[in-house]
Each structure stands twice: as C-alpha cells, then as structure tokens.
Design a protein around this nucleic acid. Sequence first.
DNA 1: GCATGTGAATGGATTCACAGCT
DNA 2: AGCTGTGAATCCATTCACATGC
Lengths: 224, 224
Amino acid sequence: MTRRAAPDRDAVSELTTGRLSVYLRCLMYLETIGQKTVSSHELAERFHLNSAQIRKDLACFGEFGTRGVGYNVEKLKETLVRTLGLDRVRNVLIVGAGNLGMALADYRGFNSNGFNIVGMLDIDPEKVGRTSRSGVSVLPFDRLNDIVRTNAVEIGIVAVNAESAQSVHDALVAAGVVAVLNFAPVQIRLRRGVKVRSVDLRINLESLAYYLKNVEDGVGEEED
Amino acid sequence: MTRRAAPDRDAVSELTTGRLSVYLRCLMYLETIGQKTVSSHELAERFHLNSAQIRKDLACFGEFGTRGVGYNVEKLKETLVRTLGLDRVRNVLIVGAGNLGMALADYRGFNSNGFNIVGMLDIDPEKVGRTSRSGVSVLPFDRLNDIVRTNAVEIGIVAVNAESAQSVHDALVAAGVVAVLNFAPVQIRLRRGVKVRSVDLRINLESLAYYLKNVEDGVGEEED
DNA sequence: GCATGTGAATGGATTCACAGCT
DNA sequence: AGCTGTGAATCCATTCACATGC
C-alpha cells in the first residue's frame, strides 16, 4: 500500500504516453544531427507540438529539465526509453505471413530498439520455410505454443484476415502472450489481463474520404 | 447563409467521424446476419460502445432513428456511407512497392467500397512490371504526374522509407493529390489545402511495451 | 412502454500564465 | 534574462437523465 515513488503512474493517459513516443522519436533525430540541448519551445516549433503540453507530459514522470536552459537531449532520450519500458527487449511473434506480416517483419523499428521478432507463423505449408528479406523465418502455425514458450514471447501480432483473427488471438493468449497488436478489421473479444491494441487501416482512408467530401461541399475552408 | 440541413458539419470532430466508421462496420456486419433493425443499446452491447455516444454522434448529422423502435440497419448504413463520403469512388495511388505497399494494395477494404487503387509506383526497375496478388500493378515512379492526372487520383499513400517520405509526399502534392496517407515514421511538413494522415506503426508497439512494463512493476492491476 | 434526441452535468485534456529556479 | 514546472482557466468529449415522440 506504500506507493510513493511513482506519483500514480497508472493514472497517466494513453494520449500522454503516445506523445512520449513522439518526443522520443524527435529526440533521436536531434541526437543524429548532434544537438545537445533542446527547450520545450524548440521541440514544439520544430515538430508542430505545444510547448506547455510537452512540459506537462514530461512532468508526469519527474523533473528532467534545467530551468533557464532546457532539456539535455541524450539524458531525456534515455529517460523516455526507460519510462516507456523500451530498455529491455520484448520478444514478438507475428501470425500471418502474407504481405502484411512480411511488411511488419521488415518494418524498421519492429525488430530493433526494444523489440525482437522471433518469427512469423502461417498455416500455409507453401509459406513455411521461407524467410523475409530481413531474415525473419516463417514457421508452421501449429508450433505456436512451443515457440511462445521457448522464446518467451510477450507480444503477438495478428496479421491474418478478419475471419481468423479471433481464433488466432485466442490461441496466442492460450499460449501465454499477454499483449496483442491486431491488424484485422474486427473487434477482438478481450479478456482480463491481456492488452489488445487494434490498428484499423481502413478507418484512416475513410477519414480522408470524409475530408475530400467536405472540400467538395465547400465546408471548413479555413485550416492550418 | 441558409444552411439548415447540415447543422455545422465542419464542427464535427475527427473522433466522432472515426466512430462513424466503426458504426458503419458494425452495421455492415448486422446486415450480413440479416438484422433489419437495431437500437443504440444493442449496438453498444454487441460492440462494446456507449449508447448515449452513438446517439449523440448520429445526431450530428440528422435524425435517423425512430423513437420506441431504433434504427433501420440498411438505411442507417446508407446514411453513414453518404455522410462519410464513401458513396463515390476515390482513386488511390500507392508509392512504394515493398511489402507494405503490396500489403496495402491487397488489403481488403483498400480497393473496394469507395476506393480504387490505380497502381503502385516504385523506382526499382526490378519491381516495375510486377503485380500484386490481387492484380495491382507496379509502375515506374517517374510516371507519377501522368498517372495522377489521367486517373484523377485524389489520395496518395506513402509506403516508402523514412528518408524518401517527404520528397515522395511533395511529388504527390505537386502532381495534384490532395489527401495523403503516410506510413513512414516521419513528421511530414504540411501544406495548406492538403490533408495528411500519418499512421505510425511503431507507436502501437511501444504502447504495448509500456503496458508490459507497468504489469511488471505491478501498477494498475485493476482493468476491465 | 420503449428508444431516440438533447440540454445539463461531469470528467479529461489542453492551454494559459506565472512563480520559481539557473 | 530564459525556461521549466505547475496551479488555474479553458476547452472539448463523454455521460447522465429526461422530455419527446413512436
């Protein structure tokens, strides 16, 4: 019941942590161009953010800046890495070796900096044995349990079609996976203790269609 | 100045329109299982939504329900299709014929129901001439202008690496594309009159890492 | 009676503006 | 002087609860 060190870490919203990821990306860029120090104002200007929000977000986790100066790029970067839990490697298993699975397997950032893809599963014997361009191999789906256990897989990625998504999800959870990233356009039935994040690619397209329609109708001509 | 039918369409938030897409998906499902009528309560129960919010969201665009009864599935579906601007076909061009481009070209929903992929561009001569599984062909990148014009392309999809993303974006805009869906992990420099939506795949993984870290630290054990 | 549509109430998130430190 | 960290103020989104109409 003594929880003082962390000023209610659980109360930090997902919006905030999502932005921390964005800040992290910005800091990594600044590091590559050799910048040592950055103020919340400069971050905001450069990357179209809001300086007050940056400060608020960071303040949820401690005081990292120096008044009158700003933030040390490298230090803040490392703090964010630790805060986001990227300072240790999580093993990831992709299910579905279609184009999407392949794309994710080779996506820069899915197999680096805190994540390690242990393989891709597929039921199609044709695909089993192949390898993605970057070297992730396709294994038979029925080895799921075995692979999750021996590789200590924590994150599963569902890259199969809508029909199979729920059963693949259930299989992953049954094998012991506790976090799932779902790319199938279905509402996954959740269970306690398992975190699911769904990415719905079509919704993004639809939002563009909505924008186009409004442009045609001459609505909301004022924009940034 | 006489705008009565649409009670300030421009004031509707993206959160709301995003949910309309979700409702549309639900309705399409209900239609396939032959349901004629649905109440906001039933929708909420079935798909883990909030009934009051459903009603509020729909009310932004008019009155579609019948008190004491609910909503007519087919009618509401068609209303949403029209509201979201999916009642006419938008031509889409993908730039980048790597795994991601291929995955998107074959993604169910990207080439149907309001969207038509006219092709995929790539600079790699090796890839040019190939075809995705579903029949989208890869064309040389330098035909961009030509293709956008002759096919009346409205939406561009950036599926190239981070380094090329900005220049590809600029080329699309220069050719006349007015809406862009960006999959590269960079902050695209925007211009007036062009709508950009970025999908950052890595951020979703990072949010799972954050969840895992908190589980390990024993934070926020209470959840739905 | 039952379910919509909606003002009012609540709850969060963002922004402002300044006290406090370097 | 300059910039962080933060209460206060504002803005926006969600939820409640009920009047309205089928």
